[in-house]
Design a protein around this nucleic acid. Structure first.
Lengths: 110, 110
DNA sequence: TAATATACTTAAGATTCTTGGGTATAGCAA
DNA sequence: TTGCTATACCCAAGAATCTTAAGTATATTA
């Protein structure tokens, strides 16, 4: 989330949405996926990502599985049932936000 | 900005845009205008608004004129030259943000 | 006469980042 | 073989931006 104040508050939405689409992912994978999907626009720093994952887990939205791959540990995250509900909620909040900002920013057409 | 985390970071953009459209406004007027424009979706609290106005003024984007109306003081804010430049910059950041979020959130059509 | 609206200010605390550090393995280049 | 880059995780100090809640004061409405 380097340098872009507007992304504040949207990280948990992004994480939840990606996990909803991809089933399960590990932290590093999420940073890379976001970089590709946004064509480099959005770079999620590890200092932001990992605390966010821990919080979502603590809130009961994510569950964890450890796995050893190439002699390196990975923590795979996936949605809990509550997490699935939360994705839908977060996405509708995001859509509402975008709509509201467009009301404020775009010249009224009516 | 009650209860909506996503609005974090967007307040200065909103203020600058409104002042760009309306020439000059005072704080209380801004809160009311936003409420009307967003049909109640976004309520800017005074605890957020006034510090934000003071910061924008300190950054050189806004200038102030005092005026006495109905025996009550009003502080009218308007854009400086730098402020006018900043509006354009903030608006394009917001458009970029919205576009990026839609890339992340909407199913790819291509 | 008490509540609501108008109008501005500030301070403590919460949340969510950035920045910068740490640990460790693997692979590639000098 | 040595150092850089990539992979993969973690944490803490500080910054930025908000919420909450308080204070000051006048005008209007119930």
């Amino acid at each position: 989330m380097s340098n872009k104040k507007l992304y504040r508050g949207s990280l948990s939405t992004i994480i939840l949405k990606l996990l909803g689409d991809n089933g399960r992912m590990y932290g590093y994978e999420i940073t890379q996926k976001v970089k590709v999907l946004t064509e480099g626009e959005l770079q999620i720093t590890e200092g932001a990502l990992y605390p966010a994952l821990h919080k979502l887990e603590g809130d009961g939205y994510l569950k964890v599985e450890f796995e050893q791959v190439n002699n390196r540990m990975r923590k795979y995250y996936s949605l809990t049932e509550d997490g699935t509900t939360e994705v839908a909620s977060k996405l509708s909040e995001m859509e509402q936000f975008i709509q509201t900002m467009q009301q404020l920013i775009n010249p009224k057409l009516a």
